[in-house]
C-alpha cells in the first residue's frame, strides 16, 4: 500500500460546546479521488479550513507527503503542495485570467521579491501560465479580467491556478456548484484526468459526479466520519442511507 499523500489523524475542533470536527481521520492515496460528502452542517467547511490552515485544529495532526503541516500558515501549506479551489470562486478580479495564473506560477517558481523585471515580458511566467489555461480550455479567454468571466470559466480558472502550483494534492471544494449539466459533465471528465497529476480530495454535493469519480467516499455527519469505503460499500451502508442518502440511492 502506497504512503498517503494527505493524512488527517484524529482531528478535533470545537467552537464552544459545538464539536464541529469530532476525531476525524482520513487519508488520500496517490492517484485516487477521495470524495467527502455529508449533509449541510456536517462540518465539511470547517474541516477544509483546517486542512488549508485558515482554522487551527484543537488536536490531531495533518500530514502532507509525510510532513506535519498542522501548525503552518495558509501560504506555507500552499507552497508545500496543497492546491485548492474554493466553493465560491476566489480570484483577483481586476487581473486577466492569464495574470491570475501567472501569480501562481511566480509563487511556485520561488521569490515574489523581484522588483524590476516586468512580468508581462517574462516568458517563463507567461508560457507556463498559457499552458495551464490551455489544459482547462481557457486559452482564448486569457486576456479577459477574471471579473468578466462566466461562473463556469472562473471554476476552470481556479483549477488552472491549482495546476500551476504543481500541487501534490488537490482539495476541491464543490467544483460542480452552479455548473449546468453540460458543464458538470465536462468537468467530471476533466477531474477524471486530473487524478493522474495528483490525488484529489473532492468535497461535492453532486452525487452523480461523486459516484462517477470517487475511488473512495467518506461520509461526514455531525463532525464525525460515519463511514469510509468504495462507492458500492457506501451505497449499501445502512447508517449512511439513514443519515444522508435517504431514498436517493
Amino acid at each position: 500500500m502506497a504512503e498517503p499523500v494527505l493524512e488527517l489523524s484524529d482531528i478535533v475542533k470545537s467552537f464552544g460546546a459545538l464539536r464541529a470536527t469530532d476525531h476525524v481521520s482520513l487519508d488520500l492515496k496517490p492517484g485516487e479521488i477521495h470524495a467527502l460528502i455529508g449533509p449541510n452542517g456536517a462540518g465539511k467547511s470547517t474541516l477544509i479550513h483546517q486542512i488549508c490552515g485558515t482554522l487551527r485544529q484543537d488536536s490531531g495532526t495533518i500530514r502532507l507527503a509525510g510532513k506535519d503541516i498542522g501548525h503552518l500558515g495558509v501560504a506555507e501549506r500552499s507552497r508545500l503542495g496543497l492546491g485548492r479551489t474554493f466553493q465560491v470562486s476566489s480570484l483577483t478580479p481586476d487581473f486577466s485570467a492569464l495574470r491570475n495564473v501567472m501569480l501562481a506560477v511566480q509563487a511556485q517558481q520561488g521569490s515574489s521579491f523581484r522588483f524590476f523585471k516586468p512580468v508581462m515580458r517574462d516568458a517563463s511566467l507567461i508560457d507556463r501560465s498559457m499552458a495551464m489555461l490551455e489544459r482547462v480550455g481557457l486559452q482564448d479567454r486569457a486576456r479577459i479580467p477574471a471579473a468578466e468571466l462566466s461562473h463556469g470559466e472562473r471554476r476552470q480558472l481556479e483549477i488552472a491556478i491549482a495546476l500551476a502550483l504543481s500541487s501534490k494534492a488537490f482539495l476541491l471544494d464543490e467544483p460542480m456548484a452552479g455548473m449546468g449539466p453540460e458543464g458538470s459533465k465536462a468537468l467530471t471528465g476533466f477531474l477524471h484526468s486530473l487524478r493522474q497529476e495528483a490525488p484529489i480530495l473532492l468535497v461535492e454535493h453532486d452525487m452523480d459526479a461523486v459516484f462517477a469519480l470517487a475511488d473512495r467516499i467518506s461520509v461526514l455527519v455531525y463532525g464525525r466520519v460515519i463511514a469510509t469505503g468504495t462507492v458500492e460499500e457506501i451505497r449499501r451502508d445502512p447508517a449512511v442511507r439513514t443519515a444522508y442518502l435517504g431514498d436517493h440511492a
Partner: peptide
C-alpha cells in the same frame, strides 16, 4: 509591473487568493 507589484496588487484584490498560491501577503 514586477512580480512584487503583481503580488502587492493581488493582495489588494484578494488576500486569501494570494495566500492560497503560497505568497504571504
Amino acid at each position: 509591473g514586477s512580480r512584487f507589484g503583481s503580488a502587492l496588487q493581488a493582495a489588494r484584490q484578494n488576500e486569501v487568493r494570494v495566500a492560497t498560491v503560497g505568497i504571504a501577503p
